[in-house]
Design a binder for these strands. Structure first.
Lengths: 236, 236
DNA sequence: TGCAAGCCAATTGTACGATAATTGGCTTGA
DNA sequence: TCAAGCCAATTATCGTACAATTGGCTTGCA
């Protein structure tokens, strides 16, 4: 097991261990110590320690002399870290995770849209419009629907001009990627262009409340869809 | 410079370098390479590399052979990381940062309160009440006002039962710590107990909308206060 | 002169071995 | 019974050596 992905051995090992932790591989077994990792993965101790330190920096691992290295409780994981989100996606598809994502989005994105309506300048309007155009193009098969959707939502986050909102780009991207795995199955409908356009227009018009509501509608629709599936599953 | 804080040299170095990056020390000078760090801080290369790797995991640094180690653009920093937030606090007091914090809170916390109203059980109600009681005790000098306030807000986040909302505990704590540096100066008023109690009661009553509004009021008050100071500063 | 191939040097990446520090558990003695 | 002190496991730190990557420079050819 020498040929991991990643730009180098350290990142490769981080990837393998991180994924294993997040998908719950170590829920019922102890996390190995440095010597074991070295043996099992055939890498040097330097690489091992650096990978473990990176996972510790993301809140996944802790380590103490004599006690060894151990997985920290979920609560201390940094769920807004790009890697952690990606690993989260690899575990078994959970309607619950999707609901959690969208419960967050429904709070964050409408607020971002409202801020964008107040602050966004011409070039940010253009970025949002570009996302919208990509969605239109995608509908005719000239672009990727998912990527276009993500581009639109990220452009709105950026337009909020608040660095904390911009941080949600990965969460939104991950949420949409998760969604599509369901919505493709549940309902064939492509994301409503008209609803997205309404968000764009409200932002350009500088109407914060309308922007907030338009964005809320977009995500509420998904949320309702999810709750519906939840009922279904509960009933089955 | 051998005696840093932190439980060990690696964490100590991470602390020193991370703080320097976040407060902008390297805005106008290049980030040192491994050899320089070793020399300047009198630590081994292992320690240096592990500290750099941790900061890379938080999105602050990147590194490539021949090119060296370099500070990444702010946008890729993980602003929801506990350490990054703490370092952010150490840079010059900025009304802008405080506004950004509260623009986020006003979106997140009311939504968390609404979810809490729907889902929280008895033990979570108790935790929120405990926070409230600490605030009351603090008003009579029997506890720390700030810590009590933080405990209350974190309890609400927890009660949302959504792992993503719980992640905001550090943001909220940091925001409150930042606030107090202003509000102590601006207005002597202690945080309104009655307004906090209203949130608690709405949650216990299971009234999501009332909980949302009550929490929004709490934060809106701060936001208004901040905008007021912004005006003042602009006028001066 | 222009340009591409290839060499060169700087820097990070990887490996290994040795010793120190920390800490939880065990042992021993009063 | 209990506390002090020893012991062993594991991470923490250091040092050195060599490999891999990569951007820039040089050189030689057309």
């Amino acid at each position: 097991m020498q040929q991991e992905l990643g730009r180098n051995l350290t990142y490769g090992l981080q990837e393998v261990l991180g994924r294993a932790i997040v998908v719950g591989y170590y829920n019922d077994r102890p996390f190995p110590n440095e010597a074991d990792i070295v043996r099992e993965h055939g890498v040097s101790r330097s690489v091992t320690r650096e990978a473990v330190k990176m996972l510790a920096a993301k809140g996944l691992l802790g380590a103490r002399p004599k006690q060894g290295t151990f997985v920290l409780p979920q609560e201390s994981w940094n769920l807004f870290d790009t890697d952690v989100l990606r690993w989260l996606l690899e575990r078994k598809l959970s309607i619950n995770l999707l609901r959690h994502f969208n419960e967050l989005r429904v709070a964050v994105e409408p607020a971002a849209a409202a801020l964008a309506a107040r602050r966004a300048g011409p070039e940010q309007h253009a970025a949002i419009l570009a996302g919208l155009d990509r969605m239109r193009a995608a509908e005719q098969g000239r672009d990727e629907t998912l990527d276009a959707d993500i581009a639109f939502h990220v452009a709105v986050l950026r337009a909020s001009e608040n660095p904390f909102y911009i941080q949600f780009r990965d969460v939104v991207a991950t949420a949409l990627r998760t969604s599509i795995r369901f919505t493709n199955r549940i309902a064939g409908r492509s994301a409503s262009i008209a609803d997205h356009a309404a968000v764009y227009e409200a932002i350009v018009a500088g109407d914060a409340d309308r922007a907030r509501l338009a964005m809320a509608k977009l995500i509420d629709d998904v949320l309702v869809l999810i709750e519906g599936v939840g009922e279904e599953a509960a009933a089955a």
